[in-house]
């Protein structure tokens, strides 16, 4: 295994670790937006498709690249738009009265929502 691949493996393992730490703290409330968000982010594979479509390495690569650019762009655009649309819907209760009611009965929430 050459040094470059090994550094890549480091990057992968560390990123997965960071991801694990962060994502375990995402409340179930936002699990659907989380899915669409990670989906949009991983559509960064668009950068790989751009290289395939634009580096003029023969028509097969160009056509496959074009299809990949199209697919990845769908996820980038659609993914971020729909995530934003969902997150926009999550609103706090405007009435402060319920706050007190909650403080009396509900268990401590440790910032979970």
């Amino acid at each position: 295994m050459n040094p470059t691949s090994f550094i890549q493996l480091y990057v992968f393992v560390l990123a997965a670790f960071v991801g694990y730490q962060i994502i375990t703290r995402v409340p179930p409330l936002l699990h659907t937006p989380l899915m669409s968000a990670t989906n949009a982010i991983s559509a960064i594979s668009l950068v790989g498709s751009l290289v395939a479509a634009g580096s003029n390495r023969g028509s097969v690569s160009t056509i496959l690249g074009f299809a990949a650019v199209t697919a990845a762009t769908i996820n980038v655009v659609g993914g971020f738009v729909i995530t934003d649309r969902m997150l926009k819907m999550f609103k706090r209760d405007p009435a402060p009265a319920s706050k007190e009611a909650k403080a009396s009965g509900a268990p401590p929430e440790s910032g979970k929502r």
Binding site: F12, A15, A16, G19, M35, N39, I41
Partner: peptide, 9 residues
């Protein structure tokens, strides 16, 4: 990195 985040999620 993005793939690892998505995979972890």
């Amino acid at each position: 990195i993005a793939g690892a985040l998505d995979g972890a999620s």
